[in-house]
């Protein structure tokens, strides 16, 4: 019967749209209290990608929380930089909101000249933070990270590590591990996590670092956690800190608005976002999608994003990748 509900909802929308036609012809955003109009979530990735799916999971509840329509616009291309550039150019009125993963805002600005930087945005809040885990297949010859590092030292440049593309978090993880352990892994980039996991299972690459939830899903063994503390599910897997390196990394999705957006709008969005992330239905969907909801205050997220930005610059600089 739920399909019936879906039809009704859409029909109601249409009716509203038709009735509101007169109102639609009003001049842009009347000066009412925010939000008085449709809020557009701009996703710099294609429909169906991880960030897009997460955004669509919060879309209905966020609309309820804001008390307005929320729509999703995908502007994809060039590792997310095309859409992020469009978001940076948008009117700073809170009606265009960037929802993105770390890459376009915290990594790409170091790799090439872009018409924006992290400073072009005002942070709103974090949607999710998923810890990273370095994984190997179950039949891998390496049972611990120490064994892997020892083998890599014996055969420099021979052990292959997959990533989901140059300048992605899994790639940064390879660079960080290389630097920390003084080893040299052979990096092979693939288009996205799924492709990399397929090659990991098929034996083309020996290891891959990605969100920790992938390990049980694909029956992979965890070797190394990139979180601050050991993961609950993997009490025996050491963290980078256990190995003596002060490095923390995680996959995150965050929300930003253009820099000049008024403070009270950012606050309103942060509040709505955090309420959304406490909604039981959203929590259930996130659990199914292997996303860990991770609400923050504006200040926390600001500091977090900045730290991330600096960390990736350091990693890329050391590897000689900063242009």
């Amino acid at each position: 019967m739920k399909i019936h509900r879906m039809l009704c909802a859409t029909r109601r929308e249409f009716a509203a749209a038709t009735l509101a036609f007169g109102a639609l012809a009003m001049p842009l955003h009347a000066q009412d209290a925010y939000p008085s109009d449709t809020v557009t979530l701009l996703i710099p990735w294609a429909a169906g990608g991880a960030t897009d799916v997460a955004a669509r999971a919060i879309q209905p509840t966020l609309a309820e929380q804001l008390g307005t329509d929320v729509i999703i616009k995908n502007v994809s291309g060039a590792a997310g930089t095309i859409g992020t550039a469009e978001a940076a150019r948008a009117r700073p009125d809170g009606y265009t909101v960037l929802v993105t993963s770390a890459g376009p805002v915290a990594v790409q600005p170091h790799l090439r000249k872009l018409p924006y930087d992290l400073d072009s945005f005002k942070p709103v809040g974090r949607v999710s933070l998923t810890p990273m885990l370095t994984m190997v297949p179950q039949d891998s010859p390496y049972n611990t990270i120490e064994e892997l590092i020892a083998a890599a030292k014996e055969n420099p440049g021979q052990i292959t590590a997959g990533s989901s593309g140059a300048g992605t978090l899994p790639h940064l993880a390879i660079l960080a591990l290389n630097k920390a352990a003084g080893i040299e892994l052979k990096h092979i980039p693939f288009q996205g996590s799924n492709a990399a996991i397929k090659e990991l299972l098929g034996g083309t690459v020996a290891l891959f670092s990605d969100q920790s939830q992938s390990a049980p899903k694909y029956e992979l063994n965890g070797l190394l956690a990139w979180s601050g503390e050991r993961l609950e599910e993997y009490p025996d897997v050491p963290t980078m800190k256990d190995l003596g390196y002060d490095i923390e990394m995680g996959n995150w999705i965050g929300v930003f608005v253009p820099l000049d957006t008024p403070e009270e709008i950012a606050t309103a969005l942060n509040e709505a976002l955090n309420n959304t992330l406490n909604d039981p239905e959203v929590l259930q969907n996130f659990a199914d999608l292997l996303l860990a909801p991770s609400p923050t205050s504006i200040e926390e997220f600001d500091a977090f994003a900045r730290a991330n930005y600096e960390f990736s610059r350091e990693m890329l600089q050391d590897a000689g990748l900063v242009q």
């Binding site: 842009l28 999703i72 616009k73």
Partner: peptide
């Protein structure tokens, strides 16, 4: 739900 370019004068079209 595909949003086409809007004019600079009106809301939503």
């Amino acid at each position: 739900q595909i949003f086409l370019p809007e004019s600079p004068w009106f809301n939503s079209f």
